[in-house]
Design a protein around this nucleic acid. Sequence first.
DNA 1: TTTAGCACTCAATCTATCTGAGTGCTAAAC
DNA 2: GTTTAGCACTCAGATAGATTGAGTGCTAAA
Lengths: 357, 357
Amino acid sequence: MELSERKKKILRAVVERYIQTAEPIGSKALQELTDLNVSSATIRNELADLTELGYLEQPHTSAGRIPSPKGYRLYVNELMEEQRLSLEETKQINDALHLKMRELDKVIDQAGRMVSQLTNYPAFALAGNPRRPTIKRFDLILVDSASFIAVVMTDGNLVKNKLFRLPTDLSEPQLQLLTTLLNTAFVGKTLDQLTPELMRVAEHAAGGSYGLISLVVSFAMEVLDSLENSSVYTAGTSHILDHPEYQDVGKAQKLMTYLSEDRALAQSLALPALNDDGAKILIGPENVAEELKDSSVVLASYDIGDGMKGVIGVVGPTRMDYAKVAAKLSYVADGLSKLFGTPELPPAEPAKDKKEE
Amino acid sequence: MELSERKKKILRAVVERYIQTAEPIGSKALQELTDLNVSSATIRNELADLTELGYLEQPHTSAGRIPSPKGYRLYVNELMEEQRLSLEETKQINDALHLKMRELDKVIDQAGRMVSQLTNYPAFALAGNPRRPTIKRFDLILVDSASFIAVVMTDGNLVKNKLFRLPTDLSEPQLQLLTTLLNTAFVGKTLDQLTPELMRVAEHAAGGSYGLISLVVSFAMEVLDSLENSSVYTAGTSHILDHPEYQDVGKAQKLMTYLSEDRALAQSLALPALNDDGAKILIGPENVAEELKDSSVVLASYDIGDGMKGVIGVVGPTRMDYAKVAAKLSYVADGLSKLFGTPELPPAEPAKDKKEE
DNA sequence: TTTAGCACTCAATCTATCTGAGTGCTAAAC
DNA sequence: GTTTAGCACTCAGATAGATTGAGTGCTAAA
């Protein structure tokens, strides 16, 4: 059953006022707040209806009304106005986006911090991989006769390296051989496929190379592993304490502890967000995780390129400024997608035959 | 003036009891707690003395006594017994130390988490560099005709890389030339010394290489910059809320916010710790930072090798279990030093002429 | 359908009182 | 000189009424 215009107007006023003040709102205040020219008694009747229908709640008999999760949901779906960011805000975001190092981990971490700072809510950021990552390429660089750098590149064009120091000497040709061997034997394999047998075979082919193959492959496995179990970055958890709904230290602590459990967060949050574009809003009990049942989450996903997706999100009380948060989050997510979409700064000279790409 | 044995005994009992219960302790309880065979009145007299001398405080006239910062200091300096870790605990730490990836950032981060989990206090970890880092070496690896990986190694043997994609083609010889150029022009320079002029000169020498030099050098600068301004990793901040002294949300928030400000933390904490070995304890007002004046900090430093030092630490109420925390922290710091001290796993075959090193 | 009016409810605040742990001091005992 | 028993005193914290006021639901009239 569709609500009357007036009911909607009232619901919206309740939500928006409650978001501001965190206090129940009564008929009289609503009368002044809305442009409906009706008495407070009429509004009381409407409030009674809205409460009956489950959109509003009453903390106790003689208090005003506050929105229920269902009320927030209706607000978010139908009544909320798209918030446009001010020029200042967009500028702030853009600046922040372009400031920092473009190493994957760092960017994600940084994005989380930025979002938290921007919204004044705790934020988190993670990158997820729909496919199982594989190794695309190995390179070994001789540093001096007793150490070398292994550079591993994954199919997602992520590059990691590690310095190895050895108790024995090593020559350039030896290293060349190893490189070739590694590239023929292990490229294109997922973590599971890097079996001990495979390593043994390769090791054997390498002859007397002191288990170097295993060393490098173990490193590659670490890289793949860390990619599959990508970490979650949380920032600004102290913002929880800003809000009166978490004045009860017990509640605050529960939520904070939950936020610091990367794995739990990742699992319950990555899933809902990875599909949709735009901001996704989960209100109170809509959250799967028990710890979030009376908090809300706003998520936005972005493309890292090469099929990888990232998610940024914000956690707060159900009384959250959804409009503003959603707008900011979407904007940042867009920015990140673009950031990853563009190739490294092209050199000064512009490519002329761009269209042939 | 040296305190009498009996006073010390009483002080120690007060501190240890207060650490456990967080509640002021009175003469009667002390009478039962200690093995002094004196009446509560006698203890009252002693307590009055200790209070006069500034080792104890009274929350209000009719309450028991609690230790003052000066009291804690005496306790830490003279009365505290070295805590030995249980086998179980050392095992737990050792396991954790050897589990994770040995990438510098990750290890530090991980160490912080571990310490927090181990002590149930918020923890932080950071790495500091006494010298200004310089670039030791560049390598460029051709991936395909339109992209390459730049590998930068610093004098601390830290290796970072980045993938560059280009709108133009690039050949192996070109890259070789660039590499040589980079290595002759920029090696051994600190961040400051990588001036625009220097880059312009090198760029010119490279001829028509489309600003590639600048690209790679900018990356190197980012690396140096991130090394100089090394980041702080905080973990377990939610543990603050475990303790009754932070039940007041305002206080908790102040501390948490402070902890999330990397820069402030680094500055006020790196300094005191980087000199000493072993655990260093800062009690309440001994802390420089205003926000820490009624909290305590325990720090331990470890060697990363090559002159670099790292610090791990724990923050908590002045009523902190100093003995336990200090023991654990020292043990972890030692473990980390060893971890960094050992070269990469030597291959199976032990080097015979090890001594010739 | 709207409105005025009114009795009712209930959290929050205030006030007063009570309780008891713990003190400081004094004077006697060791 | 030190220790102890005894006692008046203090003060945070708990308990219990009393008061307030915002806001309600219901009724009856407009």
